[in-house]
Simulated assay, not measured.
Amino acid sequence: MTEPFALAAEAADFLRSRFDVDRIDLALVLGSGWSSGADRLGEPLGDVELAVVPGFSTPVVSGHGGHLLLSRTPAGKVAATFTGRTHYYEGRGVAPVVHGVRTAAAWGAGTLVLTNGCGGLNPAWAPGTVVLLADHINLTGDTPLLGATFIDMSEAYSRRLRDLAHRVDTALPEGVYVQFRGPQYETPAEVRMAGILGGDLVGMSTTLETIAAREAGMEVLGLSLVTNAAAGLSESALNHAEVLQAGRDAGPRLAALLAGIVGEL
């Protein structure tokens, strides 16, 4: 099996050759509900199916795309947008989950924007609310780090980038994201536990990618779309169709928000 960093370097070399772009400035991972913003980030420079890039595979989750889009932002930066991700619950291990992050870092990106759809614990955050991630709690019991790799996580999500996002949309709240392993949704008791631990949002992605990005020295901005009230906080049963519909309903606002933030990066 190819060593993870060597595989990321191979993927970055493939993309350099494919697009004739030596390095990128930033990367985005578009989670559930966020794909509508992919074509609003600047001048298109090309796209490629992720499945043909070394180390990547076709996303298995409905609502996730499977392409890497390259664009030049209004600020003149080159951005790579991943319209799909590998989730930890797919059972492939941690390395495939963070392969996109490591590929972006190997291609030169210094900034990473991670987005997701999630359950909300705050009753004031109705479905369609976007929340900036101030911090996270990783309940997967796993990490992408190998051996004695001690990474400072005291500012997992960049204060500078959060301030920038607030300038684009002053109404954005901030919260703590709690990642469970999945793929089952959380029980009401698990949601109550997340709240006791200090969580505001629950989901099944993002934290492992953030750890890998911080290992690579990247600044991270996290954005969560509240797609539903977390289990036990409403009378409705949870289902993935609800997540997708919330993303479609919020699509125009998400696209405008992403375009505004990327235009400032």
Rank of each mutant, 00 (worst) to 15 (best):
M1Y: 10
T2C: 08
P4Y: 11
A11Q: 00
A12I: 02
S17Y: 10
D22F: 11
I24Y: 09
G31V: 06
W34T: 00
A38R: 12
L45T: 06
G46A: 13
V48H: 07
A51K: 14
P54R: 07
G55A: 09
V60A: 15
V60T: 15
G65Q: 08
G65E: 04
H67Q: 14
L70M: 15
L70T: 10
S71P: 08
P74H: 02
G76I: 12
G84L: 03
T86C: 14
Y89T: 07
G91C: 08
V101K: 09
R102G: 00
T103A: 08
A104M: 05
T111D: 01
G120A: 04
P123G: 11
A126E: 15
L133C: 03
D135M: 12
G141L: 04
M153C: 06
S154D: 13
R159C: 12
R160C: 10
R162E: 08
A171M: 12
P173G: 05
Y177D: 00
P183V: 11
R192E: 13
L201K: 05
G203C: 04
E219F: 10
E219Q: 15
A230M: 06
G232T: 11
E235R: 13
A237C: 06
N239Y: 11
E242F: 08
V243Y: 05
G247P: 11
G263H: 02
